[in-house]
Write a protein that binds this DNA or RNA. Structure first.
Lengths: 234, 234
DNA sequence: CGACGAGTTGATCAGTGTCAACTGCCGTGG
DNA sequence: CCACGGCAGTTGACACTGATCAACTCGTCG
């Protein structure tokens, strides 16, 4: 957390054993992985981690910060596919394809550990658990995508926004402030809306004392009310 | 194809070696799998293959027909997540969770091969390639989901409908009829629209001789035109 | 023959997008 | 140090897409 400003883009050894992902592989495994020289990289906002269509060389594990994965239409509209949170894997494409199928950019900043796919392949040959772990993570992602498809396809704007806020804050204990790392634009691109509609609902809910917002952080005041909105019963 | 009417719901030995999925595992593997008594099951439209929230006991491979995977909101709106085509795997949930996270129903009819997850687990222990194969398939699904999220989040109705038609027909050679296994309602639920809007665009394109429709089948007459619509340049 | 379900079409309305003006904040440079 | 410019966000007026409601056709099946 404290070394962000220091070494942007710096590459160092990645303490793999810290990650929940590989935790279950046990100590000797992380030694193996370390020897394979997986790297830890820092990114600042606006610098791409990878770009759709470019060579997919690494699998990433997010250590700190947030990453947005997005795709763009030919006309330049962006859709955010997923917000990656610490501990999660992203950049699966390289395991199957030669190029990435979406782009990855940090929200504010991000620290990620990356492993070259060819090394991962070698590793997978020795330790089949690796592929099992990735499979499990991948299935989880798929379930998450199912849910997002339901949101985008079957819910109206207020419902999407409400359930976004609920799920965004669910990690933090109730009545605590949650940093809102996303801009209005990014929320809009995540939910398939415009900046203005996002802004309007936020304003309304702040007036109605359903949520509070203060220096890039939000707090849900009336969880119950927000839930009824999310289920379109208001 | 010819034995549908005969034994609905019948269960028989599944000729696993026919599947592209496990083809690369070689002959001795499919023997193993056969001995594990994976089953082949026939389904008719309207009978569920599995229901969201129920015990996730099997992994499925579709042999013939089409299956729709869908989720429902609390208010009863359905969103189709994916249309499964022959050769594809579905029902990954059991490998990670105890229950299914969406429901699966055949479109018209379907013939699927299913493998109990616990057997798959045993098998995975012996033959790590199995999990690698599932991982690969799963990543493909994830890419597909990314694309669908872009469609639903960033495109207007005509664009969604046009690119749906294009992708639906892309398997069949140009100027040949493609069976349209989906009802208007199902197309609407897939694209996050209403029956009426689907119907209206179809009608318009038929008038403009962009597409033709005849007994449950469609044919694209003006691919180029449809593509410009899909990219919202018309 | 009649009833029902799927699909079509029209009229109307509501929800969001679009466009534009305005505020407030922050960093830059004179 | 202040002024300016620019960017993020807000708010209002308006337009338009797509949903809703309703009537009607057509084909199928009892």
């Amino acid at each position: 957390m404290m070394d962000y400003q220091a070494n942007d883009g710096a590459i160092s050894e990645c303490p793999v054993d810290e990650f929940a992902v590989f935790a279950e592989l046990g100590g000797d495994f992380s030694d193996t992985l370390k020897r394979m020289a997986s790297e830890s990289v820092l990114y600042t906002a606006a610098e791409s981690i990878y770009v759709a269509g470019t060579n997919a060389r690494h699998l990433y594990i997010l250590r700190d910060g947030h990453v947005k994965l997005f795709k763009s239409t030919i006309n330049g509209k962006d859709q955010i596919i997923r917000i990656v949170k610490p501990g999660e894997i992203f950049g699966f494409d390289g395991l199957v394809d030669t190029v990435y199928n979406h782009s990855a950019v940090p929200l504010k900043h991000a620290k990620a550990c990356r492993i070259p796919v060819e090394r991962l392949r070698l590793l997978g040959a020795q330790r089949p658990e690796v592929e099992r772990l990735i499979m499990v993570r991948c299935i989880k992602e798929l379930q998450h995508a199912d849910e997002r498809l339901l949101e985008l396809g079957a819910k109206r704007s207020a419902e999407r926004l409400a359930s976004f806020l609920i799920s965004w804050c669910e990690a933090t204990p109730a009545d605590r402030w949650t940093p809102l790392v996303l801009s209005r634009l990014e929320i809009a691109q995540l939910l398939g809306l415009t900046i203005e509609t996002v802004s309007r609902f936020f304003a309304q809910w702040k007036r109605d004392e359903v949520v509070e917002e203060r220096n890039q952080a939000i707090r849900i005041l009336d969880q119950k009310r927000l839930k009824t909105v999310a289920e379109s019963r208001a």
